[in-house]
């Protein structure tokens, strides 16, 4: 199983718009909620009401500051989950075959019944997309909501990942990045979508859309005063503005 499919025509994945993400963490808990009751073992929490709470999440939202050379500093919110890489190192390292990439759509999954919880795949993933569940002892990762996107018990419009469905700003897009005509591919093309850490050679499927250029430099005013108020006085201004002169 851990051999990667030679190629997958369909490449399902997410496109995340960093220009739009406000960092609300909605996708974080929607993902937690869905996967806590869905695919495989629940996403456990340790010490949930104690001094050092921690738990398994499949999607986490970072926040970075970026300081351009010649403009005010910016904050960019940055969701991070599995990128469903084409050359997924997490799959090939797996000794049991639990980790696999689906040939039909490129989704990278863990078959929890076969997972021994060795953690090797998490080491292999440059993106921190895999977390070992402390309760179940199996590796958890984003499933691209494989149990939603084809789920015939759900209405058609709900067959999308939980995080995409919940994102209030619509910063998350789901679709086939293998099809250049798909909406997501078009978006990536139009907005210059990029892959994370290309140097790691993983060929991620997911793409991030960069923040649009910000902070126009102070432009000279286009708002010329109607007339020299000092010279004409308020009455002059009033006449001019009311179209009387």
């Amino acid at each position: 199983m851990t051999s990667l499919p030679a190629s997958t025509g369909t490449k399902l994945g997410l496109v995340i718009d960093l220009d739009t993400c406000v960092g609300c963490h909605a996708c974080v808990t929607a993902c937690k909620g869905w996967n806590d009751q869905g695919y495989g073992a629940a996403l456990s929490d340790q010490n949930p009401y104690g001094a050092d709470p921690s738990g398994t999440f499949l999607n986490r939202v970072h926040s970075y500051q970026v300081v351009p050379d010649d403009a005010p500093p910016q904050i960019v919110n940055f969701p991070r989950s599995c990128l469903h890489c084409e050359d997924a190192p997490c799959v090939t390292v797996c000794p049991t075959g639990a980790s696999y990439k689906r040939a039909e759509d490129g989704i990278v999954l863990v078959n929890e019944d076969a997972c021994i919880g060795c953690g090797l795949c998490a080491w292999a993933c440059p993106y921190g997309a895999r977390e070992l569940d402390m309760d179940a002892g199996v590796m958890k990762k984003c499933t691209l909501c494989v149990d939603r996107i084809y789920n015939e018990t759900l209405p058609e419009e709900d067959r999308e990942p939980a995080c995409v469905r919940t994102c209030p700003t619509g910063a998350r897009h789901f679709g086939d990045l293998g099809d250049p005509h798909s909406a997501v591919s078009q978006l990536v093309a139009a907005r210059g979508g990029f892959a994370l850490m290309p140097e790691q050679g993983t060929k991620p499927t997911n793409r991030y859309l960069p923040p649009r250029p910000k902070d126009r430099p102070d432009q000279a005013s286009l708002l010329a005063p109607l007339l020299d108020i000092k010279a004409t006085g308020f009455a002059g201004w009033l006449d001019k503005v009311l179209g009387k002169i």
Binding site: T29, G33, T166
Partner: peptide
């Protein structure tokens, strides 16, 4: 209660939920 998601027909949130709502 096993799962909470947004109501798509609802005028306020149109299906989406925030981090709190989904928790």
């Amino acid at each position: 209660v096993s799962y909470i998601e947004g109501n798509r027909d609802h005028p306020i949130n149109k299906g989406v939920l925030c981090a709190k709502g989904a928790s």
